[in-house]
Write a protein that binds this DNA or RNA. Structure first.
Lengths: 345, 345
DNA sequence: GGTTAGCACTCACCTTAATAGAGTGCTAAC
DNA sequence: GTTAGCACTCTATTAAGGTGAGTGCTAACC
């Protein structure tokens, strides 16, 4: 049995209808709503075929048909028409994301918020892991007799800092010298490399002369560096789950909210392939996500560091609209982070 | 009619029972469970009196009795026995909060998390508003030919920074000079005062000489300063709502979650009185919180800056336990922030 | 041979009714 | 003042019947 034109047409109609209504689609409804010149009985025959082929299921004997993962996959890959965003949506994206391009993390947070507003789904955005980022600058500034602030700046413009009290008071020149030595030693090195032992050890011997000072500072230097490496996850639109019929059940809503709050969930996001990736229902590797579809895309900072952006929702989602929104947003982010990433105003 | 010993005893029993079970308490149940040597009928008479006095209600004609706000108030003020925390809970609080005392914000975040774990309610913690905080140090550090990092440090140890590109390249000495001038001008000034216009204006004229550089930096200086002033709100245990019978209804759970996510909610928290404050049900000023009780307490940093910590949950909550936990935690925070606030290890 | 009308059948969902259970309020007796 | 007894109230649960949307099958139709 093969998928002829008419079967595809019926399948497409069922998917569209179900995405809109969240109700199983019956043959009668279908023939009434989409005038395709064939009777319900004929549609029923075709439906039976489509079910046998694995594209449809029905929840109980005499309910309408519901698309399967396989159907959504076919739809996403072949059937789905490209959805052109409304001008209103486009300007909204441009405006909201341009306003705050000054601060990378804020921009990413805004992106997540905007994405959930435009899709009415739960969205997330992950800042790039800094493993491909390089250290640019180390400075230890005196504040008090025994208080200093340690500031690290990376190539991509991330600034990380900490205030700490010294066990031994020290002169400003010592701090300056140490800053310079550290900058000299670490500049241009990968952040993640600096965290490995041997670099540290060799350096520690270099500065044995001022070891007391360095001893105070090194542990915190490492912690601050680690903080710099962390990705940040922004979730938004969590409450949208309550407007989705699939989650009208308290138990399901609870499970969903607990899932996206798990550390596990973050890991899944970070480990996804690049580009726009759609995983549908049981295509997801994690058991707990089998009821959901996930659409993610990547954006780049200076064409290099990679962050992610996406939505999670029921398998029944407006794939074409969501995809268009995400594509437009990541494209915009890429451009924004490329040229004017750190430009002022 | 007055509250004699027996009435109080009955009221206390009803409150305790209802806090535990979340079910209206009947006369029969009461006489069976708490052997107070009187028959259900007598209890019913007393109940009728208590209801007339406004301490009890019943949801429908023949349901058991439920405590009113007035009853909880009496309970909290007079009847409630002090609850001694288990040693396990105490050590948990000490350990978890000591481990991270290095970073103020992290500690506050941990406190919120711990509080929700110990109470099984939704908790929150607010970092102090910095309006009583003073600027300690300004530094503008060169990173690149045209990139600098602006770092502000406050009296309480808060560090705020931003990276920015200069429109005009400039020499290091200029930056150093500007840092020094700014530090000299602003040191010891209240953060919020610096934001007012006249200080800025007078300063701007002072440095007319290097106006180009200052022009680049001042707007961002102000933004960074503002960021420093912000309070941070940490919410935790949101999902606990799903285990509370009162919120077993999807609509109620939704309303609750939406409420605590409102900006309005933050405002309520920030504007509460100092010390341990319990507001019960309709004692709350905000309409939307009339079904909840709120317990908050304040902690101090260096005995001065004031942050807040608390829980929100159904009026039926374990007031004595929650109060003990919050008291113990704030007391611990006060001590920790007093002496070793910024001490390293 | 594909298409269609007709029909029996299925199953969720809604409404209604019946029943059980917990509790109250009142009264009369202790 | 206290208590036993009893009628009454209201919720919650279960069962039963009806409705409607939908299916699958068969036989007739073009």
């Amino acid at each position: 049995m093969n998928l002829n034109e008419r079967k595809l047409q019926i399948l497409q109609a069922i998917i569209s209808d179900f995405i809109r209504s969240a109700e199983p689609v019956g043959s009668r409804t279908l023939s009434r709503k989409y005038e395709m010149g064939i009777s319900p009985a004929t549609i029923r025959n075709e439906m039976a075929d489509l079910e046998e082929m694995g594209f449809l299921t029905h929840p109980y004997t005499s309910a309408g048909r519901v698309p399967s993962t396989k159907a959504y996959r076919l739809y996403v890959d072949d059937l789905m028409e490209r959805h052109e965003l409304e001008e209103k949506e486009k300007t909204q994206i441009r405006n909201k994301l341009n306003a705050k391009i000054l601060e990378l993390d804020k921009t990413v947070e805004h992106a997540a918020k905007l994405l959930s507003e435009l899709t009415n789904l739960t969205s997330f955005a992950v800042t790039p892991g800094k493993h491909e980022d390089f250290l640019k600058y180390v400075n230890i500034m005196p504040v008090d007799a025994d208080t200093v602030v340690l500031v690290l700046v990376s190539e991509s413009g991330k600034v990380s800092n900490t205030a700490l009290k010294l066990k031994v008071p020290c002169r400003n020149e010592q701090l300056e010298l140490l800053s310079k030595v550290m900058t000299y030693n670490y500049k241009g090195k990968k952040l993640s490399d600096i965290l490995t032992m041997d670099i540290i050890r060799s350096f520690e011997s270099d500065i044995a002369a001022m070891s007391k000072l360095a001893e105070s500072i090194m542990p915190r230097f490492m912690i601050t560096l680690e903080n710099m490496l962390d990705t940040e996850l922004y979730l938004d639109g969590l409450m949208n789950i309550f407007t989705i019929p699939e989650y009208n059940d308290i138990e399901k809503a609870k499970l969903f909210l607990e899932m996206v709050n798990q550390k596990r969930f973050t890991d899944v996001l970070v480990n996804r392939d690049n580009g726009v990736i759609i995983t549908i229902g049981d295509e997801n590797s994690e058991e707990i996500m089998r009821d959901c579809s996930l659409i993610t895309a990547t954006y780049k900072i200076n064409g290099k560091l990679i962050g992610r952006l996406g939505v999670i929702g029921p398998t029944r989602m407006r794939y074409n609209h969501v995809t268009s929104v995400i594509e437009y947003m990541t494209q915009h982010l890429n451009e924004a982070f490329e040229t004017g990433g750190k430009e002022d105003e």
